[in-house]
Amino acid sequence: MMTMDSVYLKVPAKPEYMLVIRLTTSAVASRAGFDVDEIEDIKLAVSEAGTFMMNEDKGVEWLELTFKVDKEEGIWIDIFASEAVDEAVLFSKNEQTELSFYIMESLMDGVEKAIDNGFLRGIKMYKKFGG
């Protein structure tokens, strides 16, 4: 039976906490067994997702990250915001958001938006070993 280790991180949705997200992501990806290049990919993808979901105008107060590690398969990461954000507004307000999502999709094996009643609540992504 597959066993997964889980790590949870909840940080204020403020730019100064992106470093905390990156450090945690690096540590978890390293413990999962990814190599240095893969750790860089995962770190950047998660950081992009955090930046993407961070939207002070919409009252997002915190970001909650869940890392699930299967040492035979890979890593699954959910990045959720405290408040759902209108995706159309998000894209129109920030010219970097499209670039950000493109980077995530390029670096991970799968990236999915978690939509709740037409609003973006979070981003889910995974990367498999050797993927």
Partner: peptide, 9 residues
Amino acid sequence: KYIDSTGLG
């Protein structure tokens, strides 16, 4: 050591 989409922007 690191640059993301905001830096690229």
